[in-house]
Amino acid sequence: MALAIRRTTTDLFTAAKWFARRDCRFLSSLPEKAEETAEEAPKRPGRRSSSRNPALEFRHVYPEFLPDPNPKWRNSLREKLERADMLKRRNQIDIPEFYVGSILAVTIADPHAQGKINRFVGICIERKGCGLRAEFILRNVIDHQGIEVRYELYDPTIQRIQVLRLEKRLDDKLYYLRDALPEYSTFPVDMDPEILPEGTPVPLNPVQVKLKPRPWLERWERQELKGVSNIEEHLKEKDRVRRELRKTPWEKYDLMKQYRKTIPEEDQNEIWGEVYNQLHQLQITRKKTYRKRTLSTPKPQLG
């Protein structure tokens, strides 16, 4: 998706040299970490940070504001109207910042349920879609049964989205949890929200998940997954050979492919310029209510 930024032409040439030396860091959707900037500092002192708009960081926090990069479907007026609608919805309900790997509790108004309210707690395994179509999938194991529910972010029946644990994982999509041992997907339904102190960066959970023995739903060995620990012990020689044949090491040098998957920096600046103020305002109000809630409501006494 459009999480990385397209480079300008001057950057493209320098990037070509850069590839030879290291992995394609800017394919990663993680914001530049502390050790990375320290490494780059001697090569290009301060050039990146000064030329970039600070609002661009929002591309990680609110990825659904960026439209689908397919040029066939792009239209500036429609995108403006869509963003206006998204902001209107955000004024009604607080859609918090979360990432794949965070644990959420979603309360919806369900016409089928008794009491008309339905709450589900789970870990976010996927986040996809652009604009009003943005969706996410929550997974949990309840009564030894794995359950996944797909929700739309901008659905007006959603009453509340609460982040119980805000964290990131090593991978973009956590589909491998379906083939992992159930303890990695089990989260208690009455979990308390874990509060992070203000200003801390989003923690990265480096957990490496153990998979169940095969058969699996997908060929996890062929996808470069960082969050899985014991793939190798389940593989046969045939799988290893086939994996080598299927590898596409040239893909990381394919600049045009990357270009087609992202929104250029100029367009992104425009987009974030439009929505930044309102989103920032919403963030501030959210922090205030958060503070008030933690101060005023005492923890219920058990027993």
Partner: peptide, 13 residues
């Protein structure tokens, strides 16, 4: 149609 400015939909029992 439910306009986005209106509050969240809820169903009555």
């Amino acid at each position: 149609i439910h306009p986005f400015e209106e509050p969240t939909i809820s169903f009555e029992e």
